[in-house]
Write a protein that binds this DNA or RNA. Structure first.
Lengths: 153, 153
DNA sequence: TATTGTTATACTCTATAACTATA
DNA sequence: TATAGTTATAGAGTATAACAATA
């Protein structure tokens, strides 16, 4: 029988990443949000006024998919579409005051999520892990704050 | 405008995990395999002779889903179902010699994948990262070698 | 009657591409 | 004719639950 090699760091990352994403999805579900929605809300607040095309490109999804996400958040009053009078084809996206408040709550959820996930590490180890992860993410060309897997709710 | 907090370690883990999983999927696609197939093949080789029910429980998927995965690998001669003469309802799963060879190739792919992903870290840093990730995975109760997200090809 | 494995059904999510309105 | 946004369609992948064989 062939030797079964132990899982490498890449596998550990994929495994822990899926676990972290699933737990986060459970937590934001209590705010009646999906992870892609939180990502979009955050992106809109980070750079208000961008068009849907710009946002879709930034988040790495087809514009048609953004429509449903925007619809959902707009229907709940968390963000709004503002028509550009100079070019009425464009919809500039802005967070509402309610959206800003929701973002604050998402931040609290994210902090609690972080604490739970890293419960096995002390403060120094957490900082070491964070720094190493940020280095790898940067070297791999990942855009800060943009999840490649916003393809699943 | 509310403050946009920087992404925490949990987000970095989810982001890097999705990236790692996507790159791994690209690599094993060259072996004409999907990540769930590699996970099943590995699980079968790790503990040969288990029933499909046992495997499904171990991998955290419904038995009905395992059927299609087993069908695909069996059709390619990578594993085989052996009926238990004492209880003909049971199908014990075993890797074939060809399956063992394929597992070796998957191991090579995984090592190359690891190297590419961690290209930004030196040997000491890689070991530190691995140790921290393994600690977190253990504390979170994750089963070694079992990916919670074998739900997506 | 209970259990293993299988098949059938229905559902969720997605990308592609057709469509509309504006330019 | 080109572009922003929207809608329609179809495809992939999944879980649930019904089913057949065996116990």
């Amino acid at each position: 029988m062939a030797t079964i090699p132990r899982a490498g760091s890449a596998f550990l990352l994929a495994q822990l990443g899926a676990h972290a994403a699933a737990r986060f999805a459970e937590r934001v579900a209590e705010l009646d949000l999906t992870p892609p929605q939180t990502g979009l809300l955050r992106a809109v607040a980070t750079g208000p006024g961008r068009s849907q095309q710009e946002l879709a490109g930034y988040l790495g999804m087809p514009p048609s998919r953004l429509v449903a996400l925007v619809d959902g958040l707009a229907a709940r009053g968390l963000l709004e579409r503002r028509r550009n009078p100079d070019d009425r084809r464009l919809h500039a996206l802005h967070p509402t005051a309610e959206g800003e408040r929701m973002l604050g709550r998402i931040g609290e959820v994210a902090r609690a999520h972080d604490d739970e996930l890293l419960a096995g590490l002390d403060a120094t180890e957490r900082e070491t892990l964070r720094e190493l992860l940020a280095r790898v993410a940067g070297q791999q060309g990942l855009t800060p704050g943009v999840h490649p897997g916003y393809r699943r709710v």
